[in-house]
């Protein structure tokens, strides 16, 4: 159980922090599209170097990057290894084939590039700005309201779950693969769901008392020329990658 830390370095002074979140989101979609369309090693290499450049520009600290890298890196390594071992082709070293190795390395680079693009462009703006940016780009209000609510209550429930598990430890609970553990864990889950259910009615009433009738997620103010010009260099990268993919 970890508190989400995506907003930790959202307020910085780097060139990426200064860009408009709408344009960053748009650029991210284009960059991910371009990277996903890449199939060859050179393309993946260019995508990865672009991503590394962006991350350097964003000045996000290394421990933060590494902490977030854990999940994608594990998956990429596993899949890359699978590709290297099981792709039919010319044997290189034991069961590893040359074709498989090439595919595996390309895959790992693509995953890394996507990850770095994502962090460089999402972690450099507060999450709420990114959500407002999504509203400005036409994502339905209801969906964004759901996202905001879920995000907000995650912290409440995290606290609650911590208290519950602390209380369990205080009573001498030790985990193991046995009936007692499973029953206790089920009790913990049931309690979490139950409390959530009980909260919903209270919260809805409180919201209605304050005049809630429909969710309102404000968009961002209209863009000006300066902001567009600032973001222009960012868009050259995905366009170059896309062009490369079509020409290759």
């Amino acid at each position: 159980m970890h508190l989400p830390e995506i907003d930790r370095y959202a307020h910085g002074q780097s060139p990426l922090h200064r860009l408009d979140p709408r344009l960053k989101l748009l650029a991210l979609v284009l960059l991910l599209l371009a990277t996903n369309l890449t199939r060859q090693l050179p393309g993946a290499l260019i995508a990865l170097s672009g991503a590394l450049g962006l991350v350097l520009l964003s000045r996000l600290p290394l421990p933060f990057l590494l902490w977030h890298l854990k999940a994608p890196a594990l998956l990429a390594l596993l899949l890359g290894l699978g590709l290297a071992l099981f792709t039919p082709g010319e044997p290189l070293l034991g069961p590893i084939t040359a074709e498989g190795l090439l595919l595996g390395i390309t895959l790992i680079m693509k995953v890394l590039a996507c990850f770095l693009y994502f962090l460089a462009l999402v972690a450099t703006a507060p999450l709420f700005s990114t959500i407002r940016a999504a509203r400005s780009l036409g994502i339905p209000e209801k969906l964004l309201a759901l996202l905001i609510f879920t995000y907000r209550y995650l912290f409440v429930f995290l606290d609650r779950a911590r208290n519950l598990s602390l209380a369990m430890q205080a009573r001498g609970f030790r985990e193991g693969t046995n009936k007692h553990t499973y029953e206790t864990k089920a009790r913990l889950y049931a309690l979490l769901f139950l409390r959530a259910y009980e909260d919903t009615e209270r919260i809805l009433l409180a919201m209605q008392a304050r005049g809630f009738s429909s969710p309102k997620v404000p968009g961002l103010p209209p863009l000006n020329r300066e902001q567009l010009l600032q973001a222009l260099p960012l868009f050259t990268l995905p366009l170059a990658l896309l062009a490369l993919n079509f020409l290759w």
Binding site: F149, L154, F193
Partner: peptide, 12 residues
Amino acid sequence: PKLALITSAVFL
């Protein structure tokens, strides 16, 4: 709010 809270609880 209801759907969001249950989602949050399931996520957690």
